[in-house]
């Protein structure tokens, strides 16, 4: 049998989009706690937790050449302990298996959110900018830790070519992350007087980027940018919505209560993303791989509507 590509977190929206693109070219082994609905027949699926011993068997028995790791969760409602354990211990184990079972290449999905929105940010952050997100939003602490674990592994373990992708806000018809949910709101809020430049990328483009990262050239950390940047107000205009401008000293305490009583799905810290800049420079990725997103800005924005 051909050497396989292990994909963690394959049952999520992005995982399924990736699997659909990749399974025609590579043998895929999927690992996820959730069942893979609508799994193509040629994908070998293991429904298990990365932290369990059984996950090691997948590596021990299969001939694995590459790993795409996106089995990382971000759910503000989950208990912080479980959250942290799943992400950090899961990733630590996975890195260990990669080193021990001769995996040649590891592609890790991180996020441009690790830099964090802030009024001090440069308009375009490059890969060496400090990861400041947790200074204002402790809920993203383990996403940063996971990114740094992989970064450390990149230096420590030269036998495994490690690529860390930090894509901008991922949106798509079935994606349920904060930016997609926010743009799908019928009556969204905006912060009065703030209209930051926002970068979005279509889920299919992220899947393509992850596959691109399996090629031999890319190495190290990359920001991945979609079709460019647009003011938040421009996005709402494209979607035919009008955001309700709420003064920011009012919006914060209000959203805090709403979140507490489960009337809103956004933790208050997410407001930083509609107030301040967190845009990145994707030129290194474009240079090393000749990257061009396939979805236009219009398609990317409208994708949240399921078009």
């Amino acid at each position: 049998m051909r050497p396989a590509v292990v994909v963690t977190g394959i049952s999520g929206n992005l995982g399924r989009a990736l699997a659909k693109q990749l399974h025609r070219h590579e043998r895929i082994i999927g690992i996820d706690r959730r069942p893979f609905v609508g799994k193509p027949k040629d994908i070998e699926m293991h429904q298990l937790d990365l932290r369990k011993k059984k996950a090691e068997d997948v590596f021990r028995h299969g001939d694995i050449k590459a790993v795409i790791h996106m089995g990382i969760m971000h759910d503000p409602r989950m208990s912080p302990e479980e959250h942290h354990s799943f992400n950090v211990i899961g990733t630590t184990r996975l890195l260990d298996y990669c080193a021990r079972y001769g995996v040649e290449r590891l592609v890790m999905l991180s996020s441009a959110n690790v830099y964090g929105p802030s009024p001090d940010n440069s308009n375009f952050l490059s890969e060496d900018a400090p990861l400041m997100a947790a200074s204002r939003f402790s809920g993203v602490r383990d996403l940063i830790e996971v990114d740094m674990l992989a970064h450390g592994f990149f230096w420590r373990q030269p036998s495994v070519a490690t690529v860390i992708l930090r894509p901008v806000h991922i949106v798509g018809p079935t994606i349920k992350n904060a930016p997609s949910n926010y743009l799908r709101l019928k009556y969204p809020w905006a912060l009065a007087g703030f209209d930051p430049m926002v970068q979005l990328i279509h889920v299919d483009d992220v899947a393509r980027a992850l596959i691109e990262a399996l090629r031999p050239e890319p190495k190290g950390v990359y920001n991945v940018v979609g079709p460019g940047e647009v003011p938040l107000s421009g996005i709402f205009r494209e979607l035919g919505r009008t955001a309700l401008p709420v003064p920011h000293p009012l919006a914060r305490p209000l959203l805090k209560r709403l979140f507490k009583y489960r009337l809103a799905t956004f933790p208050v810290e997410e407001l930083d993303h509609v107030q301040f800049l967190c845009a990145v420079d994707g030129s290194r990725w474009a240079q090393d791989t000749g990257w061009k997103p396939r979805c236009s800005m219009r398609e990317t924005i409208r994708s949240v509507l399921g078009e």
Binding site: N123, G193, M197, L277
Partner: peptide
């Protein structure tokens, strides 16, 4: 650097092309 934290002023400044004074922005 405090301009981006001011409502309306921040948007106005960005639309007329004024940028937060970081060395990276200037270089770019």
């Amino acid at each position: 650097k405090w301009v981006p934290s001011l409502p309306y002023v921040s948007t106005f400044m960005a639309r007329v092309g004024q940028i937060v004074g970081t060395p990276e922005n200037c270089r770019r």
